[in-house]
Simulated scan of single mutants.
Amino acid sequence: MQRYHTRIDPGPKERHLKPMSSHSHDHDHDHADHQGHGHSHDHSHAADMTSADSRRRVAIAAVLTGAFMFAEVAGGLLSGSLALLADAAHMLTDCGSLVLAWVGYKLAERPADPQRSFGFARMKILAAFTNGILLILLAIWIVWEAIHRLMDPVEVMGGMLMAVAVGGLVVNIIAFFVLHGGSKEDLNMQGALWHVAGDMLGSVAAIAAAGIIMATGWMAADPILSVLVAGLVLVAGIRIARQSGHILLEGTPEGLSSADISADLIMSIPAVSSVSHVHAWALTETKRLITLEVTAEPGACIETVRRDVKARLSEAFDLSHATVEVVSEPL
């Protein structure tokens, strides 16, 4: 079996065309390989504008939730409400998540350097994993405290609980609509949006606890409903930790299968006889990468096969960042 380096010296036509396919990009790989993408200055400018808008929306939501969190802490301590303290704790973690999302946007703007060839894109994944673990620990604490409250009931000031909880719901609704107006394709934005949605449910639980206490005097409603909030926190924490941990462990992204990719390339590209050494992973939630080795039919043009494979990976699997090694059986 003969091996060929995939980056062969281009012919005169390729030498003439290559500079046209490398415009406005700072990536370390050759964008002549990205057939069918049609990146342009207008596209890059639009992406920058979208990122700036998302960053601004996340900052507004972070300020809103962070400011009201202190009001909830004070109200929880004064009223004796665990539900309010639980919602404040949830709001604290969500404010932290919003800040991390903002930092993620800022770091993503920094270019790669010799020490970090992929730049700082993974920082938000590491932060998300840390945040997920903290959410799980927070949920455990809320449940533990609720058990103690049920065993040793504490007098709760229903009126103050109601006032602060209603204020929290209003703030969360405003933050929700601020984020809801952002990009629907931005997973970072969608994650922040769902955090605020969880806060809204926490505020509703606190309002329900206040209503029950004011109407019936049943103090157990407060710790019981705080456990419901803890359940929301726990589910969010497990989901975030699992997804970010999968990325940090370089697990195969959802929707990608080595067997499916190999079968598709063999069926769609006649010059490909076999595919091996397929490794797919993700740098972030949205940036997926793949490396693989392709065996070409005898006599096939190595460079043409390589370009066809990269184009097919981009078209069929949304894998625009691919490293493809092509080998050919001897004639």
Rank of each mutant, 00 (worst) to 15 (best):
residue 232 L to F: 12
residue 228 L to K: 00
residue 232 L to A: 07
residue 236 A to L: 02
residue 231 G to C: 04
residue 240 I to G: 00
residue 240 I to K: 02
residue 227 V to Q: 08
residue 242 R to C: 02
residue 235 V to N: 08
residue 234 L to Y: 02
residue 227 V to Y: 06
residue 241 A to Y: 03
residue 245 G to I: 02
residue 234 L to H: 01
residue 242 R to N: 08
residue 243 Q to W: 03
residue 231 G to L: 05
residue 215 A to T: 14
residue 216 T to E: 10
residue 218 W to D: 04
residue 244 S to V: 02
residue 234 L to G: 00
residue 216 T to S: 15
residue 239 R to F: 03
residue 230 A to T: 08
residue 225 L to K: 05
residue 232 L to D: 08
residue 235 V to H: 10
residue 241 A to N: 03
residue 229 V to F: 02
residue 229 V to D: 06
residue 226 S to E: 11
residue 240 I to N: 01
residue 218 W to I: 05
residue 231 G to E: 02
residue 232 L to G: 15
residue 227 V to T: 13
residue 219 M to N: 10
residue 240 I to V: 10
residue 215 A to V: 12
residue 230 A to M: 13
residue 217 G to H: 07
residue 216 T to W: 09
residue 232 L to W: 08
residue 216 T to D: 08
residue 225 L to D: 09
residue 242 R to M: 09
residue 233 V to M: 11
residue 231 G to K: 03
residue 215 A to S: 15
residue 236 A to N: 09
residue 229 V to T: 14
residue 228 L to I: 15
residue 217 G to D: 08
residue 239 R to P: 01
residue 244 S to P: 01
residue 237 G to L: 10
residue 230 A to D: 14
residue 235 V to P: 01
residue 234 L to M: 14
residue 224 I to W: 05
residue 232 L to K: 04
residue 234 L to F: 15
residue 238 I to L: 09
residue 226 S to R: 15
residue 222 D to N: 08
residue 233 V to G: 05
residue 235 V to A: 11
residue 240 I to S: 01
residue 236 A to S: 14
residue 236 A to E: 08
residue 227 V to I: 15
residue 227 V to K: 07
residue 238 I to A: 11
residue 231 G to I: 03
residue 242 R to P: 01
residue 220 A to Y: 13
residue 231 G to V: 01
residue 226 S to I: 14
residue 223 P to I: 15
residue 215 A to P: 04
residue 239 R to C: 02
residue 216 T to Q: 12
residue 226 S to C: 13
residue 233 V to K: 08
residue 235 V to Y: 12
